[in-house]
Design a protein around this nucleic acid. Sequence first.
DNA 1: ATGTCGCGACGTTCGCGA
Length: 260
Amino acid sequence: MKIATWNVNSLTARLQHVLDWLAVNPVDVLALQELKLSDDKFPHEALRAAGYEAAVFGQKTYNGVALLTRAPLLAADVARNIAGFADDNARLIAATLEAPGGPLRLVNGYFVNGQAPGSDKFDYKMSWLRALRDHLREELAAHPRLLLVGDFNIVPEDRDSYDPVGLAGTILHTDEERGHFQALLGLGLVDSFRLFEQPDKSFSWWDYRMLGYQKNRGLRIDHVLVSPPLVGQVRACSIDRTPRKWPKPSDHAPVIVTLG
DNA sequence: ATGTCGCGACGTTCGCGA
């Protein structure tokens, strides 16, 4: 079973990329972030023709997340955002998928960017991350086989940044953000990517500016975390840079996990 | 080069968010 996550930076602008990518990577689940479209604009027909059903939590202009699956999801089981945490933004969607070995809980997030430490947006990021942690503690109790995937907007360690010294303390690199990532690991979640030997300077996002991709000036901010019962079943985890090389790409690349 | 995208608004360019 293969599960992927991809921040597409507008599904309207990137639908053809998603379809092209799925044609060569027929994953069982694709978690999308930054749809930047409302539910009524979601391209259900094109994706259904490609073999995927979608649970959608859209928003006009900003944010928006979706879970694409080959097998239908139980609609009654789909959750949007964090229960008890008031939020104007569509950032989290969760659903349960029947799978060999038991149901899998898929939690797909577009984490708050936070702009800059000290800003109001950074305060919102910290509140959101605190609420997410509390929420996941409950989700894990209810669904032991769980994956937390998405654009975390957190660089977990220095080796996940092209310039850990120059960018130390700046957004995505602060101790507070990293503390929140560690807190998620403290719930028992494991970073799939680091279960395997990986090339140095492996990143999932590159700035559009300053030839960021060509110079590999990137960050690893898109992650797949798995709960304890799943750790032993992760067979592979990789970042697919292929679509980042296509014309008019998303600034993010997909991350793919194989569960055995 | 405050450098690139995507979106949307009383738009034909600008501000915002990333």
